[in-house]
Simulated scan of single mutants.
Amino acid sequence: MKRYFLLLGAAILVSSCGDDDGPGGIQLATTTLAEQIVEDDAAILDYLETHFYNYEEFQNPPENFNFRVRIEPIAGDNSDKIPLSQQVSSAVINVSSNETTFPLPGEETDVPHTYYFLQIREGQGPSPTVGDSTLLKVEGQLLDGFVFDSTADFGWLPLYETPLRGFANSVAQMKGGTPEGIVVNPDGSSQITDSGIGLMIIPSGLAYFNRPPDGTQIPLFAPLVFTFELGLVTENTDTDNDGIPNMEEDLDGDGFLFNDNTDLESEIERGLQIAFPNFRDPDDDGDGVLTRDEISDENGNIIFPYPDTDNDGTPDYLDFNILREPGN
């Protein structure tokens, strides 16, 4: 549970800290996203060239192999190992200063951040989106090998709640296991035999940047390495139970759910202390009619395509000017 608090906890701290204060009100060092990503890229590329994982054990599992990923330096007896650089895939996320773990001062927009991931064992189940909830085992470490958190147990982690965008997007590149793959061992422990296993390396701008959680021994501006096992996936997770899956509430399609808030101006005018992005808001347009009612018939069945009474291209549940009662 400690680890999952670490992956989720920074989101809680966002609302309690000022722009220049870290946990506990401590002044933190600042730098720009554009400056830091240059340093992070160099460090990560060097790491990929000089480290390998225990791929030979996954190719030919020895007896009682626990299928845990180990990453080690290429040196000495391991000088002939294949480096991670020849095995990983990469993707890019554009990051803006108001979309980091803690919004940063300044107006940086769309700064490219490359993250790296590797599917070591393909799961036999579905692949999650960043809007889904997942059952995971995770170990996190720094580029120098220091392990800052690890557990042998599975725990549920909603990818949409973690402030680490690189983490959520990397897990979303994988496939999980299936309920049929769950095996209960004689000692009462359990495993998921058809789970997915992978690793990721993410720059600080897709991790904690200059706001690492208090007491975690994660330095400022630290790229992070995670190895993980993806057990199960709750597909089409619907956090606010409004009938629309979280990922469909990502209106701009950028994979960041917190900047999609149709009735933000209305929430500000009403003096709300907390804004509710669409995936957390059961009334997305703030018109007083629940989203689920605006997309359902008189029997409660969801209508698809979602009703657009005035045919203006905006469905009723996002159109404040259209009050569509259930079944009408």
Rank of each mutant, 00 (worst) to 15 (best):
Y160V: 11
E180W: 08
G181L: 01
F154I: 10
G166N: 03
S150R: 05
A172R: 02
P186C: 00
D149S: 15
N169H: 13
A172I: 13
N169I: 04
G166R: 05
N185I: 06
N169L: 07
P179Q: 03
F154Y: 15
P186F: 02
D149M: 15
M174S: 07
W156A: 00
V184S: 07
F154W: 15
E180A: 14
P186S: 05
W156K: 01
N185M: 14
L159Y: 07
V171Y: 03
G155C: 11
Q173E: 10
P158S: 07
L157G: 00
T178K: 07
K175L: 04
P186G: 01
F167I: 10
T178D: 08
K175P: 00
G181W: 04
G166C: 02
G177I: 08
P186K: 04
E161Y: 12
M174H: 09
P163L: 02
M174T: 07
Y160I: 11
L157S: 01
G176W: 03
F167A: 05
E180M: 08
L157K: 00
G181A: 00
G181N: 03
E161T: 13
T178H: 09
A152L: 14
G166Y: 05
E161P: 06
G181D: 02
R165H: 08
A152H: 12
T162W: 02
T151I: 10
L164Y: 05
Y160Q: 05
N169Y: 10
T162A: 03
F154P: 00
L157E: 02
G176P: 04
D153F: 10
R165I: 09
T178C: 08
I182L: 15
N185D: 12
A168Y: 15
G155N: 13
Y160G: 03
P158F: 04
W156M: 03
A152F: 11
G181E: 02
G155V: 07
V184C: 09
A168C: 14
P179E: 11
V171W: 02
G155I: 01
R165K: 12
P158E: 05
V171K: 00
L159V: 13
G177K: 06
Q173A: 10
K175N: 14
F167G: 00
P186R: 04
D153I: 09
F167R: 01
N185G: 08
L157M: 14
P163F: 05
V184K: 15
P158K: 09
D153G: 14
G181F: 04
D149I: 15
L159S: 04
D149A: 12
N185P: 06
E180H: 14
G155E: 09
P179K: 08
V184Y: 13
V184F: 13
T162V: 06
V183P: 03
N185H: 15
Q173W: 06
Q173P: 08
V183R: 12
G155D: 11
G176K: 03
D149H: 12
